[in-house]
Simulated scan of single mutants.
Amino acid sequence: MGRRSATSATSPRTRPASPSGSSRKSDAHRAQPPAPPPPFPGTAGPRRLPQHRVTVVDSQPTAGGGVLVVVTGSLAVDNAFDKPLQFTGAFNLQPIPGQPGGFFVHNHVFRLILA
């Protein structure tokens, strides 16, 4: 039998990196980290996702096996619940035909209460 080199005996996943760094094909296609999201229009700084707290959920059945749901609560950016933004939302859930227990949102109304 012929002599095997160390490179051919190792799998591609355990092969050491080449000395030049990016000469391997897999290095050229390696995913780059995502860029930070752009700021909101008219504001400076990165985009921040709000945290929410639901305080009340009211629901009642509707015609056709649906459910009308009304939700009230507060939103806070950077966990600043000392300065919350109040909101209310209402949506109509309707059953998905042929999928027992499945629902879809038929209508949705969301209102941010700025006082």
Rank of each mutant, 00 (worst) to 15 (best):
M1N: 12
M1C: 13
R3S: 15
R3H: 15
A6N: 05
T7M: 09
S8R: 03
A9S: 13
A9L: 15
A9N: 08
T10H: 07
T10I: 09
S11Q: 06
R13I: 11
R13Q: 14
R15M: 13
P16S: 12
A17P: 03
A17F: 05
S20N: 08
G21I: 02
G21Q: 02
S23P: 00
R24T: 14
S26I: 05
D27V: 04
A28Y: 04
A28L: 09
R30G: 12
A31G: 03
A31S: 06
A31Q: 06
Q32F: 10
Q32D: 09
Q32R: 04
P33S: 08
A35W: 04
A35M: 06
A35L: 08
P39F: 02
F40M: 08
P41E: 09
T43Q: 07
A44W: 05
P46H: 03
P46I: 01
P50L: 05
Q51R: 07
H52W: 11
V54I: 06
V54Q: 02
V54M: 03
T55G: 06
V56C: 12
V56F: 14
V57F: 07
S59C: 13
P61K: 04
P61D: 10
T62W: 05
T62N: 01
A63S: 12
G64D: 00
G66M: 00
V67F: 03
V69W: 01
V69M: 02
V69I: 07
V71G: 07
T72Q: 10
S74N: 09
A76W: 04
V77R: 13
D78P: 03
P84K: 01
G89C: 12
L93P: 02
L93I: 02
L93S: 02
P95A: 06
P95N: 04
G98N: 01
Q99I: 07
Q99M: 11
Q99Y: 06
Q99P: 03
N107G: 10
V109I: 13
V109G: 13
R111N: 15
L114V: 15
L114M: 11
L114R: 07
L114S: 14
A115D: 15
